[in-house]
Simulated scan of single mutants.
Amino acid sequence: MRVETRTHLPISEKDFSQQVVDLARLLGWKVYRTWLSIRSPAGFPDLVLAKPGRPLILAELKTERGKLSPAQEEWLATLRQVPGIEVYVWRPGDWEEIVRVLRGGEGGG
């Protein structure tokens, strides 16, 4: 499967998120994302991706210039210390890495 990369065009976080979700589902991942986070703890990653035989993936998605909030940094630091999961901060420019990780290449979030 060939996946086109278009990093020269700006993309909103919402559209980027949908692209990652669509790719994950295409590759057989179950996807969880909070629909309305108003009553959820601040800073929890945007996506939880699960696939049998693979480590659980938690991904925070940002635009190229988007910055992590202190709550996001705290969650990510804690989650990176939990065995059996991979934690990523993905931006549109990371598309090739996202494809590699979701296809089954080496992790290393």
Rank of each mutant, 00 (worst) to 15 (best):
S40R: 14
A50C: 07
E73G: 03
T7I: 15
V3P: 00
T7D: 14
P41C: 07
T78C: 03
P41R: 13
R25N: 04
V89M: 02
G105K: 07
G105F: 10
P92D: 02
L102H: 13
L36M: 12
D22S: 11
P45Q: 08
G28T: 01
V99D: 02
W75R: 10
D22L: 00
L27S: 02
I11L: 14
E13S: 01
E60F: 07
Q72M: 12
S69A: 11
I85W: 00
L61P: 00
L68P: 06
L27P: 00
A50G: 05
P55H: 13
R39N: 10
L102M: 06
W75S: 03
R2T: 07
G53S: 08
W95V: 09
E60C: 03
L27V: 00
R65I: 12
L56N: 01
W95D: 05
V21H: 00
Q72P: 01
V21M: 03
G84A: 04
V82A: 07
G53L: 04
K62D: 08
F44E: 13
R100L: 05
L61S: 04
R33I: 01
R6E: 10
L23C: 06
D22M: 00
E97G: 01
I85S: 07
G93D: 06
G84K: 10
W95R: 02
E74S: 14
K67L: 15
R2A: 04
E13W: 10
G43R: 01
Q19R: 15
G84F: 02
E74Y: 05
V89W: 10
L27M: 08
A59H: 05
E74F: 05
